[in-house]
């Protein structure tokens, strides 16, 4: 996610999906002999839309042209394009933050009920889910996070099943609107 802020301290594009480079995962061959679950995961990752070329072009246009860039929004457009919020999504954010706080200050078990509630309130939020999943599926002492985030005993969901339930990798995130707004 990225936000653009101009020289006057005004947001000219609100938080949105941002990438300037096509992920190698989009083009990788699915290796033979790997577990079926991993094959399915890679298949869904390959379906995630790639807008990196368009986003990179928009960013370069703003760098070159500043306020005259067609991709720099007016203040009203920025507010209108920012994520809709509701009591449920805000409450989910408060629960997630409470979980983060308790995870740091008390311990992991204290965080779990709040993260479960955040998942239920805002089921489309991958940040809340993946942060929680990776903490229970990464083996103790591992040097890297477990990216598979598979079925576990702590949370109802997991990466693959939740992605499939949400419509697959094609719907993984809300794409940035890079149509020229003016």
């Amino acid at each position: 996610m990225a936000v653009w802020i101009d020289e006057n301290g005004m947001i000219v594009r609100p938080a949105e999906q941002a990438s300037i480079e096509r992920s190698p995962a989009r083009d990788m061959e699915i290796p033979e002999g790997i577990p079926d679950r991993l094959k399915l995961m890679i298949g869904e990752v390959k379906k995630i839309p790639d807008d990196s070329a368009a986003y990179r072009a928009a960013l370069l246009d703003w760098v070159r042209n500043g306020a005259a860039s067609a991709y720099a929004m007016t203040p009203d457009e920025v507010v209108a394009a920012s994520r809709p919020t509701s009591n449920d999504t805000s409450l989910a954010g408060a629960c997630f933050a409470m979980g983060e706080h308790l995870h740091r200050t008390v311990g992991h078990d204290a965080a779990v009920p709040y993260w479960r509630r955040a998942h239920a309130l805002d089921p489309d939020n991958w940040t809340y889910k993946r942060q929680a999943w990776t903490l229970v599926t990464t083996p103790e002492g591992a040097t890297e996070n477990d990216l598979m985030q598979g079925p576990n005993d702590v949370y109802e969901g997991n990466w693959l099943d939740d992605v499939l339930a949400a419509g697959g990798g094609d719907n993984y995130y809300v794409r940035a609107n890079l149509e020229r707004p003016k």
Binding site: I11, P14, P75, S82, R83, T85, L91, C95, H101, A110
Partner: peptide
């Protein structure tokens, strides 16, 4: 329209983002 979550065991509250405007941003001022 900020939800408040209270954890009585640890004496802390968590305050959610404002929902009064229906959008994450109420203004474009950073």
């Amino acid at each position: 329209g900020m939800p408040v979550v209270h954890d009585s065991d640890h004496g802390v509250w968590s305050l959610g983002a404002a929902t009064a405007t229906g959008r994450t941003l109420a203004t474009a001022v950073a």
